[in-house]
Write a protein that binds this DNA or RNA. Structure first.
Length: 728
DNA sequence: GTGAAACAGTGATCTTTGTTGCGA
DNA sequence: ATCGCAACTTTGATCACTGTTTCA
C-alpha cells in the first residue's frame, strides 16, 4: 500500500494534465448543436490512432486525465503489480431529457480513444447509440463516435483553454492487494485517493460525469462489471439508468460481458463476485417513494400494477411519505418483491396452457374491461360491476385436455381444438403442423380437429390462427404416408409444369426463328405471299394442338381447319364453339394471326398460351371443364379415388385428373370413404393397378403435348406452383 | 433543494373464432 | 338452393410511463 502511495505521488508530480478527458454524453437538441459538439470534439479531443501514438504521447508525460490513468496503469504493470484499468463508461442515457443545456455550462464533448485502447467497448457504444435512438426516434443527432476520428487534430500549437472537468474520474486503476486478496482502487490524478471506492461516484446532478457502468480491464484483456463496488444505491438508483431496466436487458448485458469474461475463475474472482453481490444485497432500504419503484427487493402497494398482487402481505418495513420524517402517520408499508405475483384471469391462464385449480379463490378482482354479452346495460342498475377474477400462477396447474377416445378428437364449440402450447395436445392425440395435413386427413377419412395456435387481429376482431391439425396418434403413420404421397405429387406436378413452361417458351422461340427465316427468304418478293405463309404456319400451330410440324412436312400442307377439326373430334362440346368461330368471318385474318402469340408482350402473362388466338380460348375452357368436373365429382362422392383417363388432356400437368394419375403412378391409394362419419376404419391400401388404362406418357410425347395444350384454364392454378418451384 | 402529487400527453398493450359475394 | 372458396376487412379502450408544474 505504501508503495502504491509512493508510486501515485511520483506519477502525479510528473504527469501534467493539459487536455480535457472523456465526459458524459448527452443528447443533442438539434442539428446545430450536434455540429457544435462535433466541432468541439474535432478541435479538442485527444486521439490516439495507434499504439505508436500512445507511446509518443507517453514520453511527453502530458495529456488528459484519462491518458494519465492509463499511463499509471501501465506503470504499475511494469513493476509487476497486478493492475486493472477501470473505466466508468459514459453512454448516452435512455431518457432523452436534456437538463443541463444552460449556455453557461461548457459544451459537452466526446473524447475518442484509440481503437487499441481497452476502454473503448464497442458493445457499449453501439448500445448507447442504438437503443435510445430506437426507442425515441424524435431525438435527432445523437453524437457519433466514428466520424470523430480525424487523422490530424492531434496536436494544436496553441493550447486551447480546457473546459472544466468533473471532479470525478472516468478512468482510474485498481491494484490487487495480495494480502487481503482484494482489488483496491487507486486514482493518483483526480481524487488522489487510495482504497476509497466511495470517492468515485459523482452525484446524479453532475453533468460531466455519470456512473452507470464501471468496467475493470485486466491485462489479460478480460473485463468485469464492478459498478456495484463504487455506487451507493445500485438497486435503487443506478440500476434504473442501466440496460437492465429494459426488456431482456439483463440477459443482454450478461451476454455482452460474457465475451470478456475469463475462461475460468480463480478463487479471487469468486471472492470478488460474491463481494459485489453481497454489497448490493446489503444496500439499505430506500427512503423515498421513487426509489421503491421497480426496486428488485422491495415493493410498495402503490406501485402494484393491474395484473399484480402482493400475497401474502408480509410487511417488512415502512417508509415515510414526505420529507418531514417526524410525521409517522404518513408512512406506507413496504413488502417484498418476492411476494409480488402476476395474476391473470382463468381465460388468460388457459391460453397459456394452465388451468385454475378447483376451489382456488381469486387473489384479485378487477372491473371487466368491456361487456362481452352485449345489451347488458340493464345490469348497471343491479349495481353489479362486471368483474374479472384473477389468479396467480401458484393457483393453477397444467391444463389437461380431454383425451382422444377411439380416434375421436375432442373439439371445442368452434369445432376445432385449442393448442396454444404443446401441452394442450390431448393425450392420445398428435399435432401435425404441416399445411397439407388437412387434405391428407380428409383423404384418409379420419377424425381430426384444426389446431388453434393463436390469434391474429384482422379487421376489427381477432381471428383464430390455425396451425395444423390434431389427429389420433394411431393414424399418425398413415397420415405421414399420405402426406408424403401428396408431397411427391406436388413436386411432380411442379416439375412438370416447369418443364412444360420451358418447352412452351422454346417453342415460341423456335417459331419466331422460323418466321424470321421465312420472312427473310421472301424478302423482296411480293408482300402478300410471305404474309399468307406466316399466317398459315401460325394457324397450324394454333389449331394443331401443339406439335411441331415435322421437318419434312410443309407448314401449309395441312389446312389448319382440318387439323383443328381433327383434334376437336376428341372433345365433345368443342364443336359448337368451333362452328361459332367458323361462322364469324368478321374476324380479321391478320388480327387473328397477331393474336397467335407472336407479340412479345404475351410472354408477360404465362397463364394463357400466347400462341392461342383470343377466340379459341373459351373453347378450351369448355373442353377441359367437363372431364375436370367429372374428376372432382368422383373425388368427392365416390368412395374410391380412381383414375380419370382423359384422352388428349392428360398432358395438362396440373389438372385434377392428372394429379390423381400422377399420385397413382407412385403410390396408388384406395380410400375407403365409408370411414366418414365416425367409423374409425380408415385404411391405406396399395393396390396394384393395371398399367393399361393409365395414360403412360413417355416424357417426350407428354411434354410435347403439354406444351401445346397449356391454354387450359387450370394453368392458372399451375402458374403459382411452378413459380414457387422456381423460387426454390 | 428535494421529493411527492397532480395532470396532460403519448406510446404500448390488450383485444381474442367474420362477412360477403360469387361460382360450381 | 346449397356449398365452398376467396376477397376484403386493418379498432379502440385502457394502462403505464414521462415530463412538467406546484407545493410542502
Amino acid at each position: 500500500m505504501d508503495g502504491l502511495n509512493q508510486a501515485a505521488d511520483a506519477f502525479t508530480r510528473r504527469f501534467q494534465v493539459i487536455k480535457p478527458g472523456m465526459k458524459r454524453a448527452h443528447w443533442a437538441e438539434d442539428e446545430l448543436q450536434l455540429k457544435q459538439k462535433l466541432k468541439s470534439i474535432m478541435s479538442n479531443a485527444e486521439v490516439f490512432l495507434s499504439k505508436g501514438d500512445f507511446r509518443t504521447q507517453a514520453k511527453t508525460m502530458q495529456g488528459s486525465r484519462d491518458f494519465g490513468a492509463q499511463l499509471f496503469c501501465a506503470l504499475l504493470r511494469s513493476v509487476a503489480v497486478e493492475a486493472r484499468l477501470v473505466c466508468s463508461l459514459q453512454p448516452l442515457p435512455f431518457s432523452g431529457t436534456v437538463k443541463d443545456m444552460t449556455p453557461s455550462k461548457p459544451k459537452h464533448q466526446y473524447v475518442v480513444i484509440s481503437s487499441d485502447d481497452p476502454g473503448s467497448s464497442t458493445d457499449e457504444r453501439s448500445q448507447s447509440e442504438k437503443s435510445p435512438a430506437a426507442s425515441r426516434p424524435r431525438r435527432i443527432g445523437q453524437p457519433k463516435f466514428t466520424p470523430s476520428r480525424p487523422p490530424q487534430p492531434k496536436f494544436h500549437s496553441a493550447p486551447i483553454p480546457t473546459p472544466r472537468d468533473s471532479s470525478f474520474p472516468v478512468f482510474w486503476v485498481e491494484a490487487f492487494n495480495e494480502a487481503a486478496q482484494k482489488w483496491v482502487p487507486i486514482d493518483p490524478i483526480v481524487t488522489k485517493s487510495l482504497a476509497k471506492p466511495s470517492k468515485f461516484e459523482p452525484p446524479a446532478s453532475d453533468s460531466l460525469n455519470l456512473m452507470n457502468y464501471v468496467i475493470a480491464f485486466e491485462d489479460d484483456a478480460s473485463a468485469r462489471d464492478v459498478t456495484r463496488r463504487y455506487v451507493k444505491a445500485f438497486n435503487a438508483k443506478t440500476r434504473k439508468l442501466r440496460v437492465e431496466v429494459t426488456r431482456n436487458g439483463e440477459e443482454w448485458w450478461d451476454k455482452a460481458l460474457k465475451a470478456y469474461e475469463k475462461p475460468f475463475f480463480e478463487d479471487r474472482d469468486e471472492a470478488e463476485i460474491s463481494e459485489l453481490t453481497s454489497k448490493s444485497a446489503a444496500e439499505p432500504m430506500p427512503r423515498n417513494i421513487q426509489d421503491f419503484k421497480d426496486h428488485p427487493v422491495y415493493a410498495l402497494e402503490r406501485h402494484v400494477r393491474r395484473n399484480e398482487v402482493i400475497h401474502p402481505k408480509r410487511i417488512i418495513g415502512h417508509v415515510g411519505l414526505g420529507k418531514s420524517t417526524a410525521r409517522s402517520d404518513t408512512s406506507v408499508p413496504v413488502y417484498r418483491r418476492s411476494d409480488l405475483h402476476i395474476v391473470r384471469s382463468s381465460d388468460k391462464w388457459y391460453r397459456l396452457g394452465r388451468d385454475v385449480r378447483v376451489g382456488e379463490q381469486p387473489l384479485k378482482r378487477v372491473a371487466a374491461s368491456r361487456n362481452k354479452g352485449g345489451g347488458f346495460s340493464d345490469d348497471e342498475d343491479e349495481n353489479e360491476p362486471q368483474e374479472t377474477t384473477l389468479y396467480a400462477e401458484f393457483q393453477t396447474e397444467i391444463y389437461v385436455p380431454p383425451p382422444v377416445v377411439q380416434g375421436r378428437i375432442p373439439k371445442n364449440t368452434y369445432g376445432n381444438l385449442d393448442v396454444y402450447v404443446p401441452s394442450m395436445v390431448p393425450p392420445g392425440g398428435v399435432h401435425i403442423k404441416r399445411p397439407e395435413a388437412v387434405r391428407a386427413a380428409r383423404i384418409l377419412g379420419i377424425d381430426y380437429a384444426d389446431a388453434v395456435t393463436g390469434f391474429e387481429f384482422r379487421g376489427r376482431r381477432g381471428t383464430a390462427v390455425l396451425g395444423g391439425i390434431v389427429i389420433a396418434i394411431e393414424y399418425q403413420e398413415a397420415l405421414g404416408e399420405v402426406m408424403r404421397g401428396l408431397e411427391d405429387e406436388r413436386r411432380h406436378a411442379a416439375l412438370e409444369a416447369r418443364t412444360a413452361e420451358a418447352l412452351r417458351f422454346w417453342r415460341l422461340f423456335l417459331m419466331k426463328l422460323r418466321i424470321a427465316e421465312r420472312v427473310k427468304e421472301y424478302a423482296g418478293d411480293d408482300e402478300e405471299q410471305p404474309h399468307e405463309d406466316v399466317e398459315d404456319e401460325m394457324d397450324v400451330a394454333d389449331a394443331g394442338g401443339g406439335f411441331f410440324p415435322e421437318p419434312d412436312q410443309p407448314a401449309n400442307s395441312s389446312p389448319p381447319k382440318v387439323l383443328g377439326k381433327g383434334r376437336m373430334v376428341h372433345d365433345q362440346g368443342f364443336l359448337e364453339d368451333y362452328t361459332e368461330r367458323e361462322t364469324e368471318p368478321s374476324l380479321d385474318e391478320e388480327d387473328y394471326a397477331l393474336g397467335g402469340g407472336f407479340l412479345p408482350d404475351d410472354d408477360d402473362d404465362p397463364a394463357p398460351d400466347p400462341v392461342e388466338p383470343p377466340k379459341p380460348a373459351p373453347l378450351a375452357i369448355n373442353s377441359m371443364s367437363i372431364p375436370e368436373s367429372i374428376a372432382r365429382n368422383k373425388a368427392s362422392k365416390t368412395p374410391l379415388y380412381s383414375l380419370v383417363v382423359v384422352p388428349n388432356h392428360g398432358s395438362n400437368p396440373t389438372s385434377v385428373p392428372q394429379v390423381l394419375a400422377g399420385s397413382s403412378d407412385k403410390a396408388p391409394i384406395a380410400i375407403d370413404s365409408s370411414a366418414n362419419g365416425g367409423s374409425k376404419s380408415a385404411s391405406v391400401v396399395t393396390i396394384s393397378r393395371p398399367p393399361s388404362p393409365v395414360p403412360k406418357y413417355d416424357s417426350d410425347s407428354e411434354i410435347e403435348k403439354g406444351s401445346l395444350l397449356s391454354e387450359d384454364p387450370d394453368d392458372e392454378d399451375a402458374i403459382p406452383e411452378w413459380l414457387m418451384f422456381d423460387e426454390d
